[in-house]
């Protein structure tokens, strides 16, 4: 049974259509990604899920409740980390968590949460003295302090350095392991590929694909490429005769073989039979990035 159901969501700001038609379900316990370029309608979509905005059309149901009508009940169970949401400069880490803990009926222990998020040495540090990564972790902590069943995290790692980004990803996985369902908004491919069980690719206010990251890649870019340098001259027909291979091209001294994702064994078997050694052999698989370009016709700008 899905914990979040979005059905034909539509939202306009004046004449501008932010979300044209978005539908997806999020299952309990999964990390569900909403991926798309800036301005695709990702944030508006999750803001409707969080009850911060009223949809102009379609339906949103969270834990079987209406985010607007049952706002008071949902706020106890849904933690939200917003994009570009800050805290007062002089507020200290421990004070912020204590403050937010006081809002909930059954809050987590602030001290333990601070410890878990690696902020223990910063508990008395004012907000404006925290690094970007520390601010982000505090923001995640505030989203979790109410012991929510669902956490909505918007552009969690934007502006973080690579190390802080990886640490945050570890953190998200630990949160999921505690049984929290996570709705993650991102425009980083690597993040989506690493974290998400399933994801919806949104472009121009519409869902253009919805699948697991691997499923998305193989559905959109089913072919693989093998590159190698043969030890002796190679007759292309040896390879083009294989049913798994669709094309063979040359790039300098390199042979580039394109084919289905189970062609590697067939190709290496043929080479072995003819005692050809494949030097510098590389298998190139399509990435989510390639799939995204196929889907939307452009690359995600960082």
């Amino acid at each position: 049974m899905p914990v979040i159901e979005v059905t034909s969501l539509h939202k306009r700001y004046g004449e501008t259509v932010a979300v044209a038609d978005v539908s997806f379900d999020v299952e309990a316990g999964e990390i569900f990604g909403v991926l798309g370029p800036n301005g695709a309608g990702k944030t508006t979509t999750v803001e409707c899920v969080a009850g911060l905005r009223v949809p102009d059309g379609g339906g949103v149901s969270v834990l079987g409740l209406d985010p607007r009508r049952d706002a008071a009940r949902l706020r106890q169970q849904v933690g939200v980390q917003l994009q570009e949401s800050q805290l007062p400069d002089r507020l200290r880490v421990a004070e912020a968590l204590q403050l937010y803990a006081s809002f909930y009926r059954d809050p987590a222990d602030p001290a333990q949460l601070i410890d878990e998020l690696g902020l223990d040495s910063k508990r008395n540090t004012p907000y404006d003295k925290l690094s970007g990564g520390q601010k982000q972790r505090l923001s995640v902590a505030l989203a979790l302090v109410g012991n929510p069943r669902i956490a909505i995290l918007d552009e969690l790692t934007t502006g973080l350095d690579p190390q802080a980004r990886r640490d945050t990803w570890d953190l998200i996985e630990r949160i999921r392991d505690r049984g929290v369902t996570i709705l993650l908004v991102t425009h980083f491919m690597e993040e989506a590929e690493r974290l998400c069980d399933r994801l919806a690719v949104i472009d121009k206010g519409r869902v253009v694909a919805l699948d697991t990251p691997a499923g998305l890649v193989s559905a959109v870019v089913p072919e693989q490429r093998i590159r190698f340098r043969p030890s002796v001259p190679l007759d292309d027909r040896l390879l083009t005769d294989l049913p798994q291979v669709s094309a063979v091209t040359r790039s300098g001294s390199q042979v580039v073989v394109t084919g289905t994702d189970d062609m590697l064994h067939a190709v290496t078997s043929v080479l072995a039979r003819h005692q050809i050694i494949a030097a510098d052999l590389r298998l190139e698989q399509a990435t989510l990035d390639d799939a995204f370009v196929e889907l939307t016709g452009r690359r995600l700008a960082d």
């Binding site: 917003l82 809002f103 109410g146």
Partner: peptide, 12 residues
Amino acid sequence: RGILRRLATTPA
């Protein structure tokens, strides 16, 4: 700074 907005997502 989005402090009011963030508050709006909590029960407070």
